[in-house]
Structures are given as C-alpha cells and as structure tokens.
Design a protein around this nucleic acid. Structure first.
Length: 426
RNA sequence: GGAGAGAUGCGAGAGCGGUUGAAUCGGGCGGUCUCGAAAACCGUUGAACCUCCGGGUUCCGGGGGUUCGAAUCCCCCUCUCUCCGCCA
C-alpha cells in the first residue's frame, strides 16, 4: 500500500495514476478518512493524557472525598475513551479498505495504456522460428510424444490439469536445475518454499485471496491459501524484519508449485499448458535499498534474458503499460517467447519481473536501518526465472522437427542426458 | 493428538496492581586512559503514530475483560520448548 501521508501530499498525482492504471479507487475519500482519523487520534490522546494525569494524582495517600472525586473523574474519562476508541477502530478499518484499493505509483517511463496491446517492445532476441513443414502446437506434440497427458489430468483433477510423463518429467527437472545453477552463480540463495501461505501474507504482497474473482485457491477453514507464486512465500519470508543496511541486497531464488484458479480463462490462447491451474516455477526475489531498486530490476530482467537466450528460444522484451501493471508494481517487464503453435505463431508471456518499490514492504513491515538511525522501508522486486509450463510450450513448439521429434536446447542436454525426444510407437 | 513449561528491549533476564518504557548483565556506539590495542572506567543505545515541533499517545506474543489505574489479575487464541503418541 501507499503511505496515506504521501497520498495526502500528492493527491493530484495519485488520482491521475489511478486513472492511468484503469483502476477503481477513491484517493479523495482516503485522504478524508485519514484526516478524520488523525483528528480523532488527537482528541483521543488528549483524553488519555487526562486519564494518565488523573491516575497519577492518586498514587499517594489521599482524603477519602478527594480520592472519590478523582475516581469519579476517572470513570467519566474511561467511558469517553472507550467510545472514542471504538469510533477510531471503525475509521481505521475504513481507511485500510480504501488504502488497499490504491495501486502503487507507476514509473514515469512506463508506457501509458489500457491493456497488453499497449505494452511497448523494448528489444527482440532471435527471430520467429520458420518451419519448412506444417508446425504443430505443443498439445498435439506432447500427446504424440507421450510426455504430457491432458486427458488423464482432466479426468483425475479437472480441466486445466495435466500429467507430465516420460521425458516431460526430466525436462521439468532439467529446466529447474539449469535455471537454478545460473541463479546460484549470481549470488541468489536457493529455496524450496511452502506451497501454502497465510492470507495476511497474500494480502501484504498485494493479492486478493477472497471473492469470486480471486485467482487464489483458499483452503476451507484454514485462513490460508495455495500460493500462486513463490513471490508470496519469498516476500513473506522477512515480514516484520529490520535489516542492517549492509545486509542488503538479499537475493533469493524460490522453487514452488503455483496454483491459480484462472476462472473464466478459456479459448485458443490459453489452451494446453499455456494457462493451467498448477505449474512449477522458479522465482527470483530481491530486497534492496530504495536507491538500488532500478538497478536491481534491470538485473532481474537481464537474468531472464540470459536464461532464455541460453535455451535458444526467440523472445522479445516488453515494457508493461500502466493499465496492465499489477497493483503493487511500479514498473514491469515481460519476456514473451515465440510460440509457433498459437494461431499462426504469436508472442506469449514466459516471464515477468516487477519492481514493487516499498508498496509491499509497507504492509509486510520490512525495513532497514539507515545511517540516520531511522528505519525505512526496503524495496522489493520479483521476477520469473523459469515457469516450467510456459517454457515447455516454447521448447516443444520451437524445436519440433519434421518427423515430430523435439530437439533439446544444447544447454539442457547435460541436465537431461538426451538431446532429442523421439517419436515412439512408429 | 495428549501432558507440562514458557513468550518482556539487539541478546540473556528481573519485575507479578500506581514511583517501570521497563532493574541487572551482555552486545553495539561514543569517550577517558594508551605509542597503539586490550583491560578498566564514564556516557549512550527500542519502535510506531499524532503534532500548535514545545511536546503528546500507544506498544512487555495476539485479542478480549476486570480496575480510577494493568507488563503485573481473569478469559480466549497463537507460537516455542520438554515428554508421550502417530508418521513420510
């Protein structure tokens, strides 16, 4: 969330930012509630001071009537304070509700626009794969090679579930290890995180775990959820922490399963593995000083580029427009890989890296001690190292051969122990 | 899952209705001494919020309650430790 004081002092900019991001939030109401709350706090504190003085006056020996008078005054103050406190907690709740709706400020250079079409291409690496034969999509390839079983996934678990099978299994493990090795070399501490997190952590990260439009699976009667990304568990890892300045940056790599409801998402562009309820993802996470977050964001993007270049997958980098940014993001870059099986071929998102500045840190209460002795909020950034399901789409579709086999990227061969997934039962 | 013990500042740990935002020790920081260091000694050292920038309020695991007044008494919850059970 944003600092209410910041909203008050930059009201016009905040209102414009909400509009740029096509979000529904009421900054003016928020400020009004904030001011009302502060006024009440002031009055409440005066009453509490009176109460403290009153009880301090009663410490020694007193004549009975004097004491009784003080007790009567104390009782009056007590009732008054109780009433004000309950009013205040109501106001706090309202303020918090409004505050939650207000997105992070967007980077001034983030392209203005409403939806993903308005994202701007920053660069392209490689070029769309050209085939001398009719290319198949990954659904067909995966089934023919017997490495992905969608039918069994649907039967056992429901639509948008799948089994990886045979070499598909080793492909997932190889991709994880390949990316992990790169990250460890770059100073990231590897983690395998829980796949479940408490709602308060989800909310701190900026997810909405409740409601029918939520993308989150909540656990019945548990006050916790299946995570949609390890961003949640990595970001929650240091909640309520105060870092020494020298400890930063902290760089983490977290492997987890990701669970997403994806309610209502259907159609050609989300078929097969592209949009599923469960997948494996290796996520990067950085906690850093505010002045370093721009640089750290760049670093995350460059690592993503390195991972995909290393796999020889053609991709482009896009700068995400204001309307397409998630609420916590200040700026976001996506890598989109070439996916020949989407229609006539199409760029499809494979990674995403966001600089969330102090938006998450404020709610999760993650700070560092600055030289002036003050505790200040850290900046928090996340980025996909590799999301297996999407990477599989790109690998199967780009590296398919005329005979239906798939050539493995060179970088994966040492991890796989084979260089081709051959067509069977021919 | 059952039984017991506990949760206080950076750490250890006292306090068990009003003089405690918190003794004491340790750590950190600053200083004295020293050629320098160590030792010793002295000083200092929590956070959040509001502010008419003088100050004020709140916080002793979390939430409720009793009281004129709660770190201290009562209730509920969470977590940690020990023992037993179960289990990959």
């Amino acid at each position: 969330m944003l600092d209410p004081k910041f909203i008050k002092d930059n009201l016009e900019a905040v209102i414009k930012n909400i509009a740029d991001r096509y979000m529904k939030a009421d900054a003016e109401l928020t400020v009004a509630l904030y001011e009302k709350r502060n006024g009440l706090i002031k009055k409440l504190e005066d009453e509490r001071r009176a109460r403290n003085e009153n009880s301090a006056a009663m410490k020694g020996k007193l004549e009975a009537d004097k004491r009784n008078a003080l007790i009567a005054e104390g009782k009056r103050l007590k009732d008054n304070i109780a009433a004000m406190e309950s009013e205040l907690s109501g106001l706090d709740l309202q303020l918090d509700t409004e505050l939650r709706k207000i997105p992070n400020m967007a980077h001034p250079d983030a392209p203005k626009g409403k939806e993903d079409k308005d994202n701007t291409e920053v660069k392209q690496v490689g070029s769309p794969t050209v085939f001398s034969f009719a290319a198949k999509d990954h659904v067909q390839l995966g089934q023919e090679l017997d490495i992905i079983d969608f039918d069994a996934g649907t039967r056992v678990s429901g639509t948008k579930f799948y089994y990886l099978k045979n070499q598909g299994v080793f492909l997932e493990l190889a991709l994880v290890k390949y990316a992990l090795d790169i990250l460890v070399k770059k100073g990231f501490t590897p983690f395998i995180t829980p796949d479940i997190a408490k709602m308060e952590i989800l909310e701190g990260i900026g997810f909405n775990p409740r409601g029918p439009e939520s993308n989150v699976y909540a656990l019945e009667g548990e006050d916790s959820c299946l995570v949609g990304t390890a961003e949640i568990t990595l970001g929650g890892y240091y909640s309520d922490k105060i870092f020494a300045k020298e400890e930063l940056p902290v760089k983490m790599a977290g492997l987890s399963h990701c669970f997403r409801r994806e309610a209502g998402a259907a159609g050609q562009f989300s078929k097969g593995l592209y949009r599923v309820h469960q997948f494996t993802k290796l996520e990067m996470f950085i906690y850093c000083l505010p002045e370093d977050s721009g640089k750290a964001h760049e670093e995350l993007r460059l690592i993503e580029e390195e991972i995909f270049s290393g796999l020889d997958i053609p991709f482009r980098v896009v700068d995400t427009c204001t309307g397409d940014l998630g609420a916590p993001a200040y700026r976001k870059w996506d890598l989109e890989a070439w996916m020949p099986g989407r229609g006539e071929g199409e760029w499809g998102e494979v990674t995403s890296t966001s600089n969330c500045t102090d938006y998450q840190a404020r709610r999760l209460n993650i700070k560092y001690k600055d030289e002036d002795g003050k505790n200040k909020y850290v900046h928090m950034l996340n980025g996909t190292a590799i999301a297996i399901s999407r990477a599989l789409v790109a690998i199967l579709e780009n590296f398919q051969q005329e005979d239906g086999s798939i050539k493995m990227p060179k970088a994966l061969v040492p991890y796989l122990g084979f260089d081709t997934i051959h067509v069977i039962n021919k």
